[in-house]
Simulated scan of single mutants.
Amino acid sequence: MSWTWLLETADGQEKGRSDAFDSRGDAETWIGETFAELLDQGVDQARLLDGDTEVYGPMSLHGE
């Protein structure tokens, strides 16, 4: 399967999806490296998908 992030606003409106990654680790590294840029683009949270299956989320991109 391929791993992608579903990118959303705080109220769950879809803002887009990430590129596909070959592994969960690659997907998690990407979100860790780009979360500040995503916040600047109006993304508040993300859901990790393995194919069409949600693995976890929504995960807030804002610090506590």
Rank of each mutant, 00 (worst) to 15 (best):
F35Q: 15
E37M: 15
Q13W: 09
T34I: 15
D52E: 12
T29C: 09
L39N: 06
L48R: 01
L38D: 05
Q45N: 00
W3Y: 13
V43I: 06
F21M: 11
T4S: 00
T4Q: 00
Q41G: 04
G25M: 15
S18Q: 06
E64L: 12
S60E: 04
A20Q: 04
Y56N: 01
S60P: 01
G42W: 09
D44P: 00
R47G: 02
R47N: 03
A20I: 02
M1S: 14
L7F: 07
G25E: 12
L39R: 12
G12E: 07
F21C: 10
E64T: 08
K15E: 05
A36D: 15
D11H: 05
D52I: 07
Q41D: 13
T4W: 00
S18C: 11
Y56M: 02
T29E: 07
E8L: 02
S2F: 11
F21I: 12
L48A: 02
L61G: 04
R47Q: 04
R47E: 08
T29M: 12
S2Q: 10
A27W: 06
L39K: 05
E14F: 05
S18R: 13
W30Y: 12
E64W: 11
T53W: 13
T29Q: 11
L61K: 02
D22A: 15
D40H: 06
R17L: 12
V55E: 11
F35S: 13
G51L: 06
M59Y: 01
Y56L: 05
W30V: 04
E33K: 09
R47P: 00
G16W: 03
Q13P: 01
Q41L: 06
E64N: 14
Q45E: 06
E37N: 13
A10V: 07
D50I: 03
W5L: 04
E28Q: 11
T9S: 10
G12D: 03
S18N: 10
F35M: 15
W3L: 05
A20M: 01
M59L: 03
A36W: 15
T9C: 11
L48C: 06
E64I: 10
L7K: 06
T53R: 15
G12V: 05
L48H: 00
T4R: 00
L49V: 11
E14L: 06
D40N: 13
Q41S: 12
K15R: 11
D40I: 08
D40G: 07
R24K: 15
